[in-house]
Amino acid sequence: MNRVYVIAANTFREAVRDRVLNSILFFAVILLCLSLTLKEMSIGDTAKVVRGVALGGTSLLAAVIAIFLGVGLVYKEIEKKTIYTLASKPLPRWHLLLGKYLGLWITLAAEVGLLTLFYTLVLATQQGLPSLGVYLAMVLLMAELSLLTAWATLFSTFATPMTASAFSVCIYLIGHFADDLRLFAERAEDGPFKTMLSILYRVVPNLESFNIRDEAVHGVPVPWSEVLWSGAYGLGYSAAVLAVAMIIFERRDFK
Protein backbone atom coordinates (compact mmCIF):
# COMPACT_ATOMS: atom_id res chain seq x y z
CA MET A 1 0.00 0.00 0.00
CA ASN A 2 3.07 2.19 0.28
CA ARG A 3 3.02 2.51 -3.49
CA VAL A 4 -0.60 3.73 -3.41
CA TYR A 5 0.72 6.58 -1.30
CA VAL A 6 3.56 7.22 -3.81
CA ILE A 7 1.01 7.57 -6.62
CA ALA A 8 -1.30 9.70 -4.46
CA ALA A 9 1.59 12.02 -3.59
CA ASN A 10 2.51 12.36 -7.26
CA THR A 11 -1.11 13.12 -8.22
CA PHE A 12 -1.20 15.79 -5.52
CA ARG A 13 2.07 17.25 -6.81
CA GLU A 14 0.68 17.33 -10.36
CA ALA A 15 -2.42 19.20 -9.18
CA VAL A 16 -0.42 21.69 -7.14
CA ARG A 17 1.71 22.49 -10.18
CA ASP A 18 -1.33 22.81 -12.46
CA ARG A 19 -1.82 26.40 -13.54
CA VAL A 20 -5.53 26.02 -14.27
CA LEU A 21 -6.16 24.68 -10.80
CA ASN A 22 -4.26 27.52 -9.19
CA SER A 23 -6.31 29.99 -11.22
CA ILE A 24 -9.55 28.44 -9.96
CA LEU A 25 -8.25 28.64 -6.39
CA PHE A 26 -7.31 32.27 -6.93
CA PHE A 27 -10.79 32.91 -8.26
CA ALA A 28 -12.27 31.31 -5.12
CA VAL A 29 -10.24 33.64 -2.92
CA ILE A 30 -11.44 36.63 -4.95
CA LEU A 31 -15.02 35.42 -4.54
CA LEU A 32 -14.58 35.18 -0.77
CA CYS A 33 -13.28 38.76 -0.73
CA LEU A 34 -16.15 39.90 -2.92
CA SER A 35 -18.67 38.35 -0.55
CA LEU A 36 -17.55 40.93 2.00
CA THR A 37 -18.60 43.78 -0.25
CA LEU A 38 -22.06 42.22 -0.55
CA LYS A 39 -22.96 43.21 2.97
CA GLU A 40 -22.86 46.84 1.86
CA MET A 41 -25.44 46.11 -0.79
CA SER A 42 -27.77 43.74 1.07
CA ILE A 43 -30.58 44.46 3.44
CA GLY A 44 -31.40 42.53 6.61
CA ASP A 45 -28.86 40.28 8.29
CA THR A 46 -25.74 41.14 6.27
CA ALA A 47 -23.55 38.68 8.16
CA LYS A 48 -25.70 35.79 6.92
CA VAL A 49 -25.37 36.95 3.33
CA VAL A 50 -21.60 36.95 3.63
CA ARG A 51 -21.60 33.45 5.18
CA GLY A 52 -24.04 32.13 2.58
CA VAL A 53 -22.16 33.43 -0.44
CA ALA A 54 -18.80 32.30 0.93
CA LEU A 55 -20.01 28.77 1.76
CA GLY A 56 -21.97 28.37 -1.47
CA GLY A 57 -19.07 29.72 -3.53
CA THR A 58 -16.59 27.38 -1.88
CA SER A 59 -18.76 24.33 -2.47
CA LEU A 60 -19.43 25.23 -6.10
CA LEU A 61 -15.80 25.94 -6.93
CA ALA A 62 -14.64 22.81 -5.12
CA ALA A 63 -17.11 20.82 -7.24
CA VAL A 64 -15.72 22.45 -10.39
CA ILE A 65 -12.16 21.48 -9.35
CA ALA A 66 -13.28 17.93 -8.47
CA ILE A 67 -14.86 17.44 -11.90
CA PHE A 68 -12.07 19.24 -13.74
CA LEU A 69 -9.35 17.06 -12.19
CA GLY A 70 -11.40 13.88 -11.88
CA VAL A 71 -12.34 13.53 -15.55
CA GLY A 72 -8.70 13.74 -16.62
CA LEU A 73 -7.43 11.45 -13.89
CA VAL A 74 -7.07 8.32 -16.05
CA TYR A 75 -7.62 9.80 -19.50
CA LYS A 76 -4.65 12.14 -19.24
CA GLU A 77 -2.37 9.25 -18.33
CA ILE A 78 -3.53 7.35 -21.41
CA GLU A 79 -3.47 10.32 -23.76
CA LYS A 80 -0.04 11.45 -22.63
CA LYS A 81 1.10 7.81 -22.70
CA THR A 82 2.48 8.03 -19.19
CA ILE A 83 0.29 5.03 -18.42
CA TYR A 84 2.81 2.77 -20.23
CA THR A 85 5.52 3.23 -17.64
CA LEU A 86 3.02 3.31 -14.80
CA ALA A 87 0.87 0.26 -15.58
CA SER A 88 3.92 -1.85 -16.46
CA LYS A 89 5.22 -1.61 -12.90
CA PRO A 90 4.76 -4.64 -10.65
CA LEU A 91 1.62 -3.53 -8.86
CA PRO A 92 -2.06 -4.32 -9.32
CA ARG A 93 -3.89 -1.85 -11.49
CA TRP A 94 -6.43 -1.07 -8.82
CA HIS A 95 -3.60 0.29 -6.68
CA LEU A 96 -2.92 2.79 -9.45
CA LEU A 97 -6.51 3.93 -9.58
CA LEU A 98 -6.85 4.08 -5.81
CA GLY A 99 -3.62 6.09 -5.58
CA LYS A 100 -4.78 8.54 -8.20
CA TYR A 101 -8.18 8.88 -6.53
CA LEU A 102 -6.66 9.44 -3.09
CA GLY A 103 -4.23 11.98 -4.56
CA LEU A 104 -7.14 13.90 -5.97
CA TRP A 105 -9.02 13.65 -2.67
CA ILE A 106 -6.02 15.01 -0.77
CA THR A 107 -5.81 17.87 -3.28
CA LEU A 108 -9.46 18.71 -2.73
CA ALA A 109 -9.11 18.44 1.05
CA ALA A 110 -6.15 20.83 0.90
CA GLU A 111 -8.09 23.28 -1.27
CA VAL A 112 -11.20 23.17 0.92
CA GLY A 113 -8.96 23.42 4.01
CA LEU A 114 -7.18 26.46 2.60
CA LEU A 115 -10.42 28.17 1.66
CA THR A 116 -11.90 27.39 5.09
CA LEU A 117 -8.85 28.88 6.77
CA PHE A 118 -9.09 31.99 4.62
CA TYR A 119 -12.82 32.21 5.30
CA THR A 120 -12.21 31.89 9.05
CA LEU A 121 -9.63 34.68 8.95
CA VAL A 122 -11.87 36.96 6.91
CA LEU A 123 -14.88 36.30 9.12
CA ALA A 124 -12.86 36.66 12.32
CA THR A 125 -11.94 40.20 11.36
CA GLN A 126 -15.52 41.05 10.38
CA GLN A 127 -17.98 39.27 12.66
CA GLY A 128 -16.09 36.95 14.98
CA LEU A 129 -15.17 33.25 14.59
CA PRO A 130 -17.59 31.11 12.57
CA SER A 131 -19.73 28.53 14.38
CA LEU A 132 -19.01 24.78 14.51
CA GLY A 133 -21.79 24.28 11.95
CA VAL A 134 -19.67 25.97 9.28
CA TYR A 135 -16.87 23.45 9.81
CA LEU A 136 -19.29 20.54 9.81
CA ALA A 137 -20.66 21.86 6.53
CA MET A 138 -17.12 21.77 5.12
CA VAL A 139 -16.61 18.19 6.37
CA LEU A 140 -19.80 17.11 4.63
CA LEU A 141 -18.70 19.04 1.54
CA MET A 142 -15.65 16.74 1.47
CA ALA A 143 -17.96 13.71 1.65
CA GLU A 144 -19.90 15.12 -1.31
CA LEU A 145 -16.68 15.75 -3.21
CA SER A 146 -15.51 12.16 -2.54
CA LEU A 147 -18.62 10.95 -4.26
CA LEU A 148 -18.44 13.38 -7.14
CA THR A 149 -14.74 12.54 -7.65
CA ALA A 150 -15.53 8.82 -7.63
CA TRP A 151 -18.08 9.33 -10.42
CA ALA A 152 -15.66 11.54 -12.41
CA THR A 153 -12.95 8.89 -11.97
CA LEU A 154 -15.34 6.18 -13.17
CA PHE A 155 -16.20 8.22 -16.29
CA SER A 156 -12.53 8.95 -16.93
CA THR A 157 -11.76 5.22 -17.21
CA PHE A 158 -13.72 4.94 -20.44
CA ALA A 159 -14.70 8.40 -21.74
CA THR A 160 -12.89 11.45 -23.06
CA PRO A 161 -12.68 14.40 -20.64
CA MET A 162 -15.37 16.24 -22.63
CA THR A 163 -17.91 13.41 -22.35
CA ALA A 164 -16.85 12.58 -18.80
CA SER A 165 -17.33 16.24 -17.80
CA ALA A 166 -20.83 16.25 -19.28
CA PHE A 167 -21.69 13.04 -17.40
CA SER A 168 -20.22 14.36 -14.16
CA VAL A 169 -22.07 17.68 -14.41
CA CYS A 170 -25.29 15.68 -14.97
CA ILE A 171 -24.60 13.63 -11.84
CA TYR A 172 -23.92 16.86 -9.92
CA LEU A 173 -27.11 18.52 -11.08
CA ILE A 174 -29.39 15.51 -10.75
CA GLY A 175 -27.76 14.72 -7.39
CA HIS A 176 -28.73 18.12 -6.07
CA PHE A 177 -32.29 17.71 -7.31
CA ALA A 178 -32.59 14.12 -6.05
CA ASP A 179 -35.37 15.01 -3.60
CA ASP A 180 -37.38 16.61 -6.41
CA LEU A 181 -36.73 13.54 -8.51
CA ARG A 182 -38.20 11.33 -5.77
CA LEU A 183 -41.20 13.60 -5.45
CA PHE A 184 -41.63 13.58 -9.20
CA ALA A 185 -41.41 9.76 -9.27
CA GLU A 186 -44.00 9.44 -6.51
CA ARG A 187 -46.47 11.69 -8.27
CA ALA A 188 -45.95 10.30 -11.77
CA GLU A 189 -48.59 8.00 -13.21
CA ASP A 190 -47.79 4.29 -13.10
CA GLY A 191 -45.88 3.12 -16.13
CA PRO A 192 -42.39 2.93 -17.61
CA PHE A 193 -41.75 6.65 -16.94
CA LYS A 194 -42.42 6.22 -13.23
CA THR A 195 -40.19 3.12 -13.09
CA MET A 196 -37.42 4.99 -14.88
CA LEU A 197 -37.64 7.91 -12.47
CA SER A 198 -37.55 5.66 -9.40
CA ILE A 199 -34.54 3.75 -10.76
CA LEU A 200 -32.78 7.03 -11.52
CA TYR A 201 -33.50 8.26 -8.00
CA ARG A 202 -31.97 5.12 -6.50
CA VAL A 203 -28.84 5.11 -8.72
CA VAL A 204 -27.98 8.80 -8.64
CA PRO A 205 -26.52 10.01 -5.35
CA ASN A 206 -28.53 12.34 -3.18
CA LEU A 207 -26.05 15.18 -2.93
CA GLU A 208 -28.47 17.33 -0.93
CA SER A 209 -27.98 14.97 2.01
CA PHE A 210 -24.50 16.51 2.37
CA ASN A 211 -25.82 20.04 2.28
CA ILE A 212 -26.05 21.56 5.72
CA ARG A 213 -24.87 24.95 4.52
CA ASP A 214 -28.21 26.67 5.10
CA GLU A 215 -28.24 25.42 8.70
CA ALA A 216 -24.66 26.67 9.13
CA VAL A 217 -25.53 30.09 7.73
CA HIS A 218 -28.59 30.49 9.93
CA GLY A 219 -26.99 28.92 12.98
CA VAL A 220 -29.48 26.04 13.17
CA PRO A 221 -27.89 23.01 14.90
CA VAL A 222 -27.62 19.78 12.91
CA PRO A 223 -27.86 16.50 14.88
CA TRP A 224 -24.59 14.52 14.95
CA SER A 225 -26.41 11.40 13.86
CA GLU A 226 -27.35 13.13 10.61
CA VAL A 227 -23.77 14.22 9.97
CA LEU A 228 -22.42 10.73 10.69
CA TRP A 229 -25.08 9.08 8.58
CA SER A 230 -24.35 11.38 5.63
CA GLY A 231 -20.62 10.77 6.01
CA ALA A 232 -21.09 6.99 6.00
CA TYR A 233 -23.44 7.25 3.01
CA GLY A 234 -20.80 9.25 1.08
CA LEU A 235 -18.03 6.81 1.96
CA GLY A 236 -20.02 3.68 1.07
CA TYR A 237 -21.36 5.11 -2.17
CA SER A 238 -17.90 6.35 -3.24
CA ALA A 239 -16.39 2.92 -2.53
CA ALA A 240 -19.05 1.24 -4.67
CA VAL A 241 -18.51 3.62 -7.63
CA LEU A 242 -14.73 3.26 -7.31
CA ALA A 243 -15.06 -0.53 -7.33
CA VAL A 244 -16.85 -0.34 -10.71
CA ALA A 245 -14.13 2.04 -11.99
CA MET A 246 -11.47 -0.46 -10.88
CA ILE A 247 -13.15 -3.33 -12.71
CA ILE A 248 -13.26 -1.29 -15.94
CA PHE A 249 -9.69 -0.08 -15.49
CA GLU A 250 -8.47 -3.63 -14.82
CA ARG A 251 -9.84 -4.83 -18.15
CA ARG A 252 -8.59 -1.95 -20.30
CA ASP A 253 -6.02 -2.43 -23.06
CA PHE A 254 -3.58 0.43 -23.43
CA LYS A 255 -2.92 0.50 -27.18
Partner: peptide, 30 residues
Protein backbone atom coordinates in the same frame (compact mmCIF):
# COMPACT_ATOMS: atom_id res chain seq x y z
CA UNK B 1 7.34 -7.62 -13.84
CA UNK B 2 9.02 -7.36 -10.45
CA UNK B 3 12.60 -7.64 -11.80
CA UNK B 4 11.87 -5.84 -15.05
CA UNK B 5 12.66 -2.34 -16.31
CA UNK B 6 10.71 -1.00 -19.28
CA UNK B 7 10.95 1.95 -21.59
CA UNK B 8 8.09 2.41 -24.05
CA UNK B 9 8.44 3.70 -27.59
CA UNK B 10 8.60 7.50 -27.85
CA UNK B 11 8.28 7.91 -24.10
CA UNK B 12 6.15 10.67 -22.67
CA UNK B 13 6.62 11.47 -19.05
CA UNK B 14 5.18 13.78 -16.45
CA UNK B 15 6.21 17.20 -17.69
CA UNK B 16 5.86 18.81 -14.29
CA UNK B 17 8.48 16.56 -12.69
CA UNK B 18 12.17 17.36 -12.70
CA UNK B 19 14.57 14.64 -13.86
CA UNK B 20 15.39 13.87 -10.24
CA UNK B 21 11.77 13.73 -9.06
CA UNK B 22 10.92 11.59 -12.07
CA UNK B 23 13.52 8.94 -11.26
CA UNK B 24 12.70 9.13 -7.56
CA UNK B 25 9.01 8.50 -8.33
CA UNK B 26 9.76 5.32 -10.29
CA UNK B 27 12.36 4.19 -7.74
CA UNK B 28 9.72 4.44 -5.00
CA UNK B 29 7.16 2.72 -7.19
CA UNK B 30 9.50 -0.21 -7.80
Amino acid sequence: RRRVGFMPERPYFYEYLTAWEFLDFYARLT
